[in-house]
Design a protein around this nucleic acid. Structure first.
Length: 286
DNA sequence: AATTATGTTGCGGT
DNA sequence: AACCGCAACATAAT
């Protein structure tokens, strides 16, 4: 579920809600979610959260007076839910995708904060994790990511040159986090629709101008989604349990067998790069 | 009731 | 090295 816009939404909210707060104790409900670190509670207790950073879909929590960081990846179904003295902060949640009372069946870790609030990490499918990392490990993690399309320093021409060399579907190229960071299955399909490019087209087969269109579409779709709190397709909820509004703007993802908003041709769904893939056969050219 | 699908990524194989 | 397919896991839909 969570791709760059959803993780960024969570990051901005966590920044507001937990920055400056001190960890009172950590409750581990599932050891896999803390990378089987049995001492994580002892290590985190007393640390004050300095800031929340992000690279690609990875969250990086820093602490005052400590060189260590907490890395957190939501993978498919992870959620950070912030509860201030018994109430999920969003309030109006009509939460089908999230659990209404916390901790719940899917709560894997609870970070109890001084002052009585709690940050819950829920994760149905157990792919997500939180783990303590040394400065060196944080640097290694950062180095594994390619540039982000929303970065001020994103180099469209470098993207175009790199993609042009790869004899693999453009969809696979866009999903490669070490080449370009932040896109997942939803935003790749949406960006390729905007660019008018068929997901199955090989990088080597696309013209430089069409690859430029892809880069610009990727940047636009991510920034527009961030502006409305991300996309909820199935599981995403922000730290208050609220859904993301970009779901209303999806043009192809999940729209198979419905008419394209631009030309009326039915959107089709195929398998590409091992993933369910949606596109308009008329608007998107090979 | 069994099979298939699911938004991520890392692994092992070609 | 670049690329492909699958496994990790739980749940909902068919």
């Amino acid at each position: 579920m969570p791709e760059l816009p959803e993780v960024e939404t969570v990051r901005l909210q966590l920044r507001q809600k937990v920055r400056g707060k001190t960890i009172a104790c950590v409750e581990v409900f599932h050891p896999k979610t803390v990378a089987h670190d049995r001492a994580i509670g002892r290590k985190l207790k007393g640390l004050t959260i300095a800031d929340i950073d992000r690279v690609g879909k990875l969250l990086i929590v820093s602490f005052q007076d400590s060189a260590h960081h907490l890395l957190a990846h939501l993978k498919m179904t992870g959620q950070f839910l912030y509860v201030d003295k018994g109430k999920v902060s969003g309030g109006g949640h009509t939460l089908s995708p999230i659990d209404t009372t916390l901790p719940s069946k899917h709560t894997r870790v609870a970070f109890h904060l001084e002052g009585g609030s709690t940050l819950y990490f829920n994760d149905m499918r157990l792919f997500g994790y939180t783990k303590l990392a040394s400065p060196r490990e944080v640097e290694e993690a950062r180095a594994a990511f390619g540039p982000e399309p929303i970065s001020d320093t994103f180099d469209v021409e470098a993207f175009v040159r790199g993609a042009k060399k790869r004899r693999t579907p453009i969809k696979a190229i866009l999903l490669d986090q070490s080449f370009i960071a932040g896109l997942g299955n939803i935003y790749v399909d949406e960006a390729l629709f905007r660019a008018g490019v068929r997901p199955t087209s090989l990088g080597t087969s696309l013209s430089l101008p069409r690859l430029r269109l892809v880069a610009v579409a990727a940047r636009d779709v991510l920034s527009e989604s961030i502006a409305v709190g991300g996309t909820t397709f199935q599981h995403f909820a922000d730290t208050g349990g609220e859904k993301g509004n970009f779901s209303d703007y999806l043009r192809v993802f999940g729209k198979q067998n419905t008419p394209c908003a631009v030309c009326g041709t039915n959107i089709v769904k195929i398998r590409c790069a091992g993933r369910g893939t949606h596109y308009c056969p008329k608007c998107q050219k090979p």
